[in-house]
Design a protein around this nucleic acid. Structure first.
Length: 873
RNA sequence: GCCCGGGUGGCGGAACUGGUAGACGCAACGGACUUAAAAUCCGUUGGCUCGAAAGGGCCGUGCCGGUUCGAUUCCGGCCCCGGGCACCA
């Protein structure tokens, strides 16, 4: 055993042991309780970043802890290998996305292994492999058969110069990222998955997920967006035909206040009105510029233009003018809204801007309505009563909605209706590096699904996209095929699937990655659902909602039996670092790596400035931001591992912040973690002669041990008790703190007079045994090597988890906090089982307390047993 | 704009269910060891204030207000920061 801690040597030894013993190979075993611990798989972007290190360390801590708790643990790993960055790399470096991706996977796999994660690598998968994405295609075809997949048009960002569809990310300030050309909206045919069919179940089943973070469930609830209201129509005549303009509203009680309607620029009525109205046509064209991003649409200036058409109010029969507005979304509801400027803030602003009439139809007692300025109460549902509304006058919100819905139903012009914010999932992407959509277009037979026995439709791996057009469309060997129905010449679909499809079911495939005959098999029954899922909060809605949807589809196809894929969810925070830059008088901002910057502090440790190490000149501090290439503030995990070892990196990311918080990078924090591990090692070396592993588990009679030894033992068991509470609530930073407290307590023992006594030896043996097991999930290499060196056992990763000894916590005398009128005024020592009267007497006898009570009388006493007494005077 | 979080010393954070605010660590300062440095070890450390000292007092968890014997924790309003908004993954 080395006197000093050499991380590289320790880590190689531990990893070699795990490798040769196949320690983390997961085998189905019905006799043992299973635990499926899964971290979101990485996109193979090139090398690991700190977010990965953090994510996988958290997952590994949970997996290793569960394993020591006796569970049969599965922790797999794979690659979310399709996606846009591979194409961007191809454009930049002329490397095929496939080669770039496979090279990245090889490198990153080496990094994951160096970090010592307890992963079963035999189950590794990559979504860009045909044996994986074959099942995307297969399930898509099943969804087509069930009517769960369908084709319609969708709006995309179009770069008119490159003749290509742009991702939102590729649109910068309304312009194409490569060409700088203003982006246009364009409607193209796309495939959709009917997630809305599952809207109600996706909403209801959130209640089956009590161990998901409250906020994730709240975000999904809002995203699904169930709202109950009335769907009704404004009749109108067009070219002699009777037509209806349908709208949806949650405020049918304000229907008598409608003074106009607004339709989306893409609405058929708008298109109709634009014929012979060049001004309106120009306005609609203007609306088509810009991106399809909702965040942009929500902040643009609200604009509108009249169509010149009128529809008829369904209840009053009065004419209602129709406008086109850039703020009405074609994708929500009917693409048209009724406008009640008196009681909707956005309609109010619109009416004021264009001089449209505003009519009050709701009143609240004691309030005065004015068309001059919007007031909060105009939209008040709870206190409002109908007014100026004929037969509905005096009714409250609910009663008015009921009455109006009933009247509309009688007229055949509407009914109550549940409207969802959730939209169907458009999965078509006009990209190369993705899973081909298995459809063949035939001039005679139309869109023909590829027969199952011709799956997978394999993506050629030698393409090099150049940023223009659709790369697959330029490949005759891919495009040209024969129609499965008529055998004639036909063309393959060149769109690929959204990569969210790949990630919607990979967790199930880990149970049976080798099955070439079926998407999933009976092994899924053993492992699924995932017991603990760990990933970034940024996936709180899309990925997690799509996965839940996909699960329900697979269940309804009889492929799986569970309703929800992820029983427990932990959303880890992001990793941030300082941003330093200089802004020259002319030219662009230059960012400097925090590693190249020296921070200056004043006497009190306040940051007063920073200079670049190379030239000593000041640099600006730009606050904290997520680690990124563009801000040059990333920390390379590789360099960290080489300098300090994987255990230090792991300990740092666990100790520095609770898993759900953002984590702020700190070089000195890393130093501190390293220092702690060195102290653990040194203590093990020093304590080695005292350690008798057998006595660590034997009963020892502590009643004759010295006070100092019993105090140290109490500290150790208190820390252990807290650590076990913190493990249960996934607060691992305080588990790391508990390990530090244990070491602090243990280090005192060899310096005591009774260091060589049996009691001291028993305490060191017990305490070190506890500490090493507590550290095993966090810093598994150090724990592994010391556990063996000190003779505790063969493999700490399979050792039993320690529980605290309640007897160790007992004290003869306890300290009670004394408050007077809620303010801390003293502390008194009382016998452990003293009653309230005794505690009060002792408290009043305390000099400081007596001074504050003075000659006043104690009116009331609040006593929290074992903790605190509050005297109210 | 909409939805969801967060705000505690110089810094990361702790306080599990309304009960001692600042555990544990970092940084800083002082000291030991050393020819020296690194490493290591010991000590001090929320702010203001009274006191020679021992020891006191007041303030303090983004801001304003409320509930309570007692609020970092619960309620209402506001400010700031972060995540998501459907083609980044």
């Amino acid at each position: 055993m080395d006197e000093r801690y050499f991380p590289e040597k320790v880590e190689q030894a531990a990893q070699a042991y795990w490798e040769s013993h196949a320690t983390f190979r997961a085998v189905e075993d019905p006799a043992r309780p299973k635990y499926y611990c899964l971290s979101m798989f990485p996109y193979p972007s090139g090398k690991l970043h700190m977010g990965h290190v953090r994510n996988y360390t958290i997952g590994d801590v949970i997996a290793r802890h569960r394993r020591m708790r006796g569970f049969n643990v599965l922790q797999p790993m794979g690659w979310d290998a399709f996606g846009l960055p591979a194409e961007n790399a191809a454009i930049a470096n002329r490397v095929p996305p496939a080669k770039w991706t496979y090279d990245n996977i090889a490198y990153m796999k080496g990094q994951l292994k160096a970090l010592g994660f307890a992963i079963d690598w035999s189950r590794e998968l990559a979504t860009c492999r045909p044996e994986y994405y074959k099942w995307n295609q297969w399930l898509f075809l099943r969804m087509l058969e069930k009517g769960l997949a369908y084709k319609t048009t969708g709006v995309v960002n179009w770069d008119p110069v490159d003749q290509t569809v742009l991702a939102n990310e590729q649109v910068i300030d309304g312009r194409g990222w490569r060409t700088g050309a203003p982006v246009e909206k364009r409607e193209i045919p796309m495939y959709y998955l009917r997630i809305t069919r599952y809207a109600q179940e996706l909403l209801d089943d959130l209640e089956k997920l009590p161990e998901w973070p409250e906020r994730v469930r709240a975000m999904q609830t809002n995203w699904i967006g169930r709202s109950v209201g009335v769907r009704f129509a404004f009749p109108y005549e067009l070219d002699g035909r009777q037509e209806k303009l349908w709208v949806f509203t949650t405020r049918a009680d304000t229907i008598m206040g409608v003074t106009f309607c607004v339709v989306a620029p893409e609405h058929p009525l708008a298109a109709h009105a634009a014929r012979g109205n060049p001004q309106l046509a120009a306005f609609i064209e203007e609306c088509k510029r810009g991106t399809v991003m909702e965040a942009d649409l929500a902040t643009i200036e609200k604009k509108g233009m009249p169509t010149g058409l009128n529809v008829t109010h369904p209840l009053t029969g009065e004419p209602v003018p129709v406008w086109v507005g850039n703020y009405v979304l074609m994708s929500y509801g009917e693409g048209a809204v009724m406008a009640v400027p008196g009681h909707d803030e956005r309609d109010f602003a619109f009416a004021r801007k264009y001089g449209l009439p505003i009519k009050q139809v709701i009143e609240v007692a004691g309030q005065t309505f004015s068309t001059d300025a919007w007031q909060e109460w105009y939209a008040d549902k709870t206190n409002g009563r109908c007014v100026n509304s004929g037969k509905y006058d005096g009714l409250g919100h609910e009663a008015a909605v009921e009455a109006i819905a009933a009247d509309l139903k009688r007229l055949g012009l509407g009914d109550k209706h549940v409207q969802w914010r959730l939209r169907d999932w458009g999965i078509s992407r006009q990209r190369y590096w993705g899973c081909p959509i298995p459809i063949i277009h035939c001039d005679r037979c139309g869109d023909v699904p590829v027969p199952d026995d011709q799956l997978p439709v394999v993506l050629p791996e030698d393409c090099v996209p150049d940023g223009t057009g659709n790369p697959l469309a330029k490949r005759p060997d891919f495009v040209n095929t024969t129609c499965p129905k008529c055998g004639g010449a036909a063309r393959r679909e060149t769109d690929t699937m959204d990569t969210f499809v790949d990630s919607s079911w990979y967790y199930a495939r880990y149970a049976c990655p080798d099955n070439v005959r079926a998407m999933v098999d009976e092994r899924v029954k053993y492992w699924l659902p995932v017991d603990q899922y760990i990933g970034g909060i940024e996936h709180a809605i899309l990925h997690l909602l799509y996965s839940r949807f996909w699960t329900k589809v697979m269940r309804d196809l009889g492929l799986v039996e569970y309703d929800e894929p992820f029983t427990r969810l932990l959303t880890q925070g992001m990793v941030l670092n300082d941003i330093y830059y200089r802004k020259p008088d002319s030219g662009r901002i230059v960012y400097y790596s925090p590693a190249d910057v020296e921070v200056k502090y004043d006497d009190k440790g306040n940051r007063i400035g920073a200079v670049l190490k190379s030239d000593g000149q000041p640099v600006e501090w730009g606050g904290l931001g997520t680690m990124s290439k563009s801000k040059n503030n990333g920390v390379d995990p590789q360099a960290l591992i080489e300098k300090y070892g994987a255990d230090t990196a792991r300990f740092f990311v666990i100790f520095t912040a609770p898993p759900e918080h953002t984590l702020e990078w700190s070089d000195s924090g890393v130093e501190g973690s390293f220092r702690f591990l060195k102290r653990v090692w040194s203590f093990a070396v020093e304590a080695r002669p005292l350690v008798e592993p057998k006595s660590a588990t034997a009963r020892f009679d502590w009643s004759h041990a010295s006070d100092a030894l019993r105090a140290a033992r109490r500290e150790i068991h208190l820390a252990l008790k807290q650590a076990n509470i913190d493990f249960a609530r996934l607060q691992f930073n305080t588990v790391a703190s508990a390990a530090m407290k244990m070491l602090n307590a243990l280090e005192k023992v060899p310096r005591l007079d009774e260091a060589g006594t049996p009691a001291a030896r028993a305490l060191v043996s017990e305490g070190l045994g506890i500490l090493l097991r507590l550290l095993a999930p966090i810093t598994p290499h150090v724990a592994h090597v010391l556990w063996r060196e000190l003779g505790y056992g063969e493999d700490v990763s399979s050792a039993s988890w320690p529980e605290h000894d309640e007897d160790a916590l007992a004290q003869a005398s306890i300290e009670i906090v004394v408050q007077v009128n809620g303010k801390l005024r003293g502390r008194v020592a009382v016998p452990a089982h003293a009653g309230e009267d005794e505690v009060r007497a002792l408290a009043l006898a305390d000099a400081a307390v007596a001074r504050h009570v003075g000659d006043k009388t104690v009116r009331k006493t609040v006593y929290v047993p074992g903790k605190l007494i509050n005297l109210v005077v």
